[in-house]
């Protein structure tokens, strides 16, 4: 699905935040040893969502190129797999989480690049969330390494 308008793009960002939050909440139920970390990710997703939505609603203006800023973005380029089954191993969850973070980070960076100088503060908010996602990815990688080394 193409994402051309700001409204569509923001909604897609919100969907990514909600879906990935659900993934971490489910993972927290399943794996007690990283429960705290997973729940903190889910909490951070809520803050990301607030940041993105608030920024959009505060800067949106009829004078900005809201309908034309994100031309070329496609939601299908950022699929995330969030379902967990009983046989999903801990290391698989971590690998999947890294994949999710990677895709979401890429979405935010692509959206920021597309809309730079057209959507005022929105690209900056996207970059901020992308940075948080990158930090999260590093943390997940270190958890995975720990699991491989000592698991």
């Amino acid at each position: 699905m193409k994402l051309n308008t700001a409204s569509e793009t923001i909604n897609f960002a919100v969907k990514l935040e909600n879906d990935s939050a659900k993934f971490y909440e489910d993972a927290a139920q399943k794996y007690v040893k990283t429960r705290k970390a997973f729940l903190s990710f889910a909490e951070e997703n809520k803050r990301n969502r607030t940041l993105v939505e608030r920024t959009y609603y505060e800067v949106i203006s009829d004078a900005l190129e809201a309908g034309f800023s994100f031309e070329g973005l496609n939601a299908d380029d950022y699929p995330i797999e969030t379902g967990l089954t009983s046989d999903t191993s801990y290391s698989d969850v971590l690998r999947r989480a890294i994949g999710i973070e990677d895709r979401i980070q890429r979405f935010y960076l692509d959206a920021a690049e597309k809309s730079k100088s057209l959507m005022a503060d929105v690209p900056r908010a996207f970059e901020r969330v992308a940075k948080r996602r990158n930090e999260r990815k590093l943390k997940l990688r270190s958890l995975l390494k720990e699991d491989c080394d000592y698991g």
């Binding site: 409204s7 505060e58 800067v59 949106i60 203006s61 009829d62 004078a63 900005l64 809201a66 309908g67």
Partner: peptide, 9 residues
């Protein structure tokens, strides 16, 4: 998007 822009203004 245009309507939200109008509301904001």
């Amino acid at each position: 998007d245009e309507s939200r822009g109008e509301t904001r203004r």
